[in-house]
Structure formats: C-alpha cells, structure tokens
C-alpha cells in the first residue's frame, strides 16, 4: 500500500454557557451549602437539576423544595480506567468511586463521586452524605464527593 498521511492537531475549544434562571438559583444556593429542587405541580416530581419545564407533563415549574445533602446510594461503580474530566480535557486518574444518589427530598438522582473506591465496601442502599469544599464557587464541584455514613 502506498504511503498514507495523517495530520495531528490539538484544538482548544472555549465555551460561554448561560445557566438560565432555575440553574442560577440552584448554583447560588450551592455557595451556601443549600440544595434545592424544583417540583412539578402535576406529577409531583422534585427535579434535580432544577429546570424550567417538566419533561413528562410539559408544563412550567416554579415551586422550589429543599433537599438534604444526605441520601441513599442507588447505583455505584468504581472506575478502574482513567476517564476524561469534561471541565478540563485532562484525564482523571483511577480508581475512583462514583454513584447515583437519591438525596432526601428529591425524586431524581445525582451522579457524583464517592469517597470510597473499594468495591467491597460499597452497596446499593447505603446512606451517603456530601463532603463540601471550603471554597465554593456555585458549581457541582463545590461538593468534593459523597461519603458513606452507614
């Protein structure tokens, strides 16, 4: 086969992304370690992340409900492979624990890191609690990870 040419290019992509009012309120709350969901008056679901419309009922939502920074681990994994961190484009080193967490007061789950990375010590149904960063900027990584409390 004749020579084939490939060209490698490193590109930097920049964004400017607007949260919308619901996510703004939620993000501002994180600075104060406050988690709020928005709930639908028809189906009653309390949504995280908050958003303007209920996708099931297709109506506008404006009712806020407090959510605890504690909840139940409903799914988990331990990543054994470095994965790309979408905030930077850098790889996150493995192993690290990750879970779907049903926070008390919410009806949808939150995907976040777990402090525990030993698969033998993780189980569905465990109670977990947020570990907050001291410096908070109003973003999901104001929560460092969740730790198992029992």
């Amino acid at each position: 086969m004749s020579e084939t040419v490939t060209v490698t290019i490193e590109m930097e992509q920049a964004w400017r992304y607007a949260s919308g009012t619901a996510m703004e309120r939620f993000s501002e709350g994180l600075k104060e370690r406050r988690i709020e969901a928005v709930s639908c008056r028809l189906c009653g679901r309390a949504y995280l992340p908050p958003r303007p419309y209920c996708g099931k009922c297709n109506i506008r939502m404006s009712s806020w409900t407090p959510v605890k920074d504690e909840g139940e681990l409903v799914a988990w994994t331990v990543m054994q492979l470095p994965m790309l961190d979408g905030r930077t484009g850098e790889m996150r080193e493995a192993p690290y624990g990750m879970g779907l967490i049903l926070l008390d007061g919410a009806d949808t789950t939150l995907n976040h890191y777990l402090a525990e990375s030993d698969p033998a010590k993780l189980a569905i149904g465990q109670r977990v609690r947020a570990v907050w960063c001291n410096e908070r900027r109003g973003a999901m990584d104001d929560i460092l990870h969740f730790e198992v409390i029992r």
């Binding site: 004749s2 020579e3 084939t4 040419v5 490939t6 060209v7 490698t8 290019i9 490193e10 590109m11 930097e12 992509q13 920049a14 964004w15 400017r16 992304y17 607007a18 949260s19 996510m23 703004e24 993000s27 501002e28 979408g86 905030r87 930077t88 484009g89 850098e90 109003g138 973003a139």
Partner: peptide, 21 residues
Amino acid sequence: MIREEKIQIPFVYAAGQAGSR
C-alpha cells in the same frame, strides 16, 4: 449565571488515498 470553560480536543486527520497522494 455565565460559565466560561476551555477544553483541549486532540484529533487526527486522515488524508486518505487521494489526499495522501
């Protein structure tokens, strides 16, 4: 609230048969 972020995206361009010639 506005968030501004940057991410590195590496990619490879294969010129293929005709492009390589």
